[in-house]
Structures are given as structure tokens and as C-alpha cells.
């Protein structure tokens, strides 16, 4: 039953990530929050895979890692380009999504 602890840990990590995204203005820090959430999800996937004794969860965790890596590349590129054009990495300065 120790595996439950991993789930609790995953929940805590996810909450920390979510709060980070919501609270911090700096895009880079928010981005780290996103990574934290992704890894919380990964931890949970692996935990359940272990719990049920099948490999599907672990396979999906790998997929998530690959996707996260790709996402980091694109995300960082966007942040860098915004920083270049605006001189700031604050999320509240950019509302381009509206358009």
C-alpha cells in the first residue's frame, strides 16, 4: 500500500504546478509549472501501471515525455520571441490569443 504515497506525491506536485501557472507572472516560471504538472501526471501513470501490473501506463508516460520535450522546444521559442519583441516575459503583457 505504499504506492498510495506516490499518488499523494503526484497530487502535491500537480497542485504546486497548477498554482505556479496561475500565480506567477513570468512566462518561464509558469512554464516550469506546466512541466511540473506533466511530470506529476507521469508519476501517476507509472504508479498505476505498477499497481495494475501492466505496461500501458509506462508506455504512455514515455509518450508524455516525448510530447513534453517537443512542447518545451516550441514553448521556449515563443517565449524567447515574445521577450525579444516586447522586452518582457510577463504573461499579463501578452493577450495575443484574443486575436
Amino acid at each position: 500500500m505504499t504506492l498510495v504515497h506516490y499518488l499523494v506525491l503526484s497530487g502535491i506536485l500537480f497542485s504546486i504546478g497548477a498554482v505556479t501557472v496561475l500565480v506567477r507572472r513570468n512566462a518561464l516560471v509558469a512554464f516550469m509549472g506546466v512541466e511540473l504538472m506533466l511530470n506529476a501526471a507521469n508519476l501517476m501513470l507509472v504508479t498505476f501501471a505498477r499497481m495494475h501490473g501492466d505496461l500501458h501506463g509506462q508506455v504512455i508516460a514515455f509518450f508524455v515525455m516525448v510530447v513534453a520535450a517537443a512542447e518545451v522546444v516550441i514553448g521556449l521559442a515563443i517565449i524567447v520571441s515574445i521577450h525579444r519583441t516586447r522586452g518582457s516575459a510577463s504573461l499579463d503583457d501578452a493577450n495575443l490569443l484574443k486575436n
Partner: peptide
Amino acid sequence: TGFVRSYA
């Protein structure tokens, strides 16, 4: 609104 944090 266009603000990422409000979406989030």
C-alpha cells in the same frame, strides 16, 4: 481575454 492565466 487573451490572457493565458485567465484561461488557465
